[in-house]
Design a binder for these strands. Structure first.
Lengths: 209, 209
DNA sequence: AAGTTTTTTAATCAAATGATTAAAAATATT
DNA sequence: AATATTTTTAATCATTTGATTAAAAAACTT
């Protein structure tokens, strides 16, 4: 009965994971049905449970990978002691925007699952906490050395994320309101690679801190 | 069998709507079960369908009300021809932050439902178009006079929303990352009422447009 | 108070959904 | 080629879930 297994370019297991990543990222845990994932991956439903035991376990795996993608790339830049604040801003901004153009749904997905602080994330919490801890230490060390006070760290982080990540989170709304298509949106994001660092520096100069 | 109806301070219908608003805003359409809403409202499941016909219809009602809350307050400010750009920035920022402190889940909810591009949002689209028209007429006039091109409108809208709305969208993450509680978060948002308009002006001055 | 209408409930239905099972098909091993 | 192992499938189960129904309870009308 079974379909042939050879002459596939990607294994069934990998196809399931990618289908799950796509759908979970698009629609969130509850909105995605295991049958949707099976259909998207072009495999039988039972196969999903054969490889991953349960929907929850599959989600956990995708979630951890997504989260790692989200912050991993920042570590080498933030950890580089030799970069000036200017250079850090420029590099991190460009790197982030590049990644988000490839994974526009990622921040939303992460925030979504973070917000509904349910037990869905209980399993992945610890692993994420580890990655996060490392990440934060780097960020704070780096920025504190650059004479940005702890009290203003929160503001600067909000500004940084707001200017870079928010457009992707609100992409559907922004495209409609500004009457632009995906290509034009991406082009605007490309412009922001140069603009956001300039603006962030302007912000830092503009007020008390 | 029925429970007494009198000496309730709020009608069952209203309690259902408020329970639905709370849960939908927190968790999104698919994650919320009609039985959750019934339990939260303290009523029998059948009563939900008696009053609202279906989960979808109940959602639509809550959704429209939420969205109206989200944009309603902008109209009087944007419509006031006597305000300068500075004053508009200051007032809209303060007004928005006040509203978001009361409804921190609102922008996320709207973006979430906007993203899953279902037909749920037909009404919302129209409302959005109205605000856009008004917003553009008022702000574009002002900004065009200040030689801000149409092309840069998109950037400025992203900046404005990013600096004000994003912190609320990412609130759970930001609270964890910066190790602050709700009260401290709100206090930071209070600071931003004054800071964001300053920063937005700094941004406008900082680059080519 | 009797009768009428509105509100609320318990019980139930039908479809959707996550998961399991036993067996078929493909692949690997000898 | 015969046998064992891995991969895949169809069929099925048990819960969950949105919705309906018939009737009880409360409120209203006369």
């Amino acid at each position: 009965m079974a379909k042939p297994k050879k002459n596939e370019d990607v294994s069934a297991e990998e196809r399931i994971k990618e289908a799950a990543r796509k759908l979970f990222t698009e629609k969130g845990f509850d909105a995605v049905k295991t049958r949707d994932i099976a259909a998207e991956a072009g495999i039988n439903l039972a196969l999903l449970n054969y490889y991953f035991r349960s929907k929850q376990k599959l989600f956990d795996i995708v979630m951890i990978e997504n989260f790692e993608r989200f912050i991993k790339q920042l570590i080498p830049i933030l950890g580089n002691e030799e970069l000036s604040l200017d250079e850090i801003l420029t590099q991190v901004t460009a790197s982030y925007i590049d990644m988000l153009k490839l994974n526009p749904g990622l921040p939303f997905f992460i925030m979504n699952e973070m917000r509904s602080d349910s037990n869905k994330l209980q399993h992945v919490r610890e692993k994420m906490a580890q990655v996060k801890a490392r990440f934060l230490k780097r960020v704070e060390d780096t920025l504190l050395k650059k004479k940005i006070s702890q009290a203003n760290m929160a503001h600067m982080m909000m500004n940084f994320m707001g200017l870079i990540i928010f457009p992707f989170v609100a992409q559907p709304i922004l495209m409609k309101v500004n009457n632009i298509n995906k290509k034009e949106f991406d082009s605007i994001m490309e412009e922001r690679k140069e603009l956001v660092p300039i603006w962030l520096k302007a912000i830092m100069k503009a007020n008390k801190f």
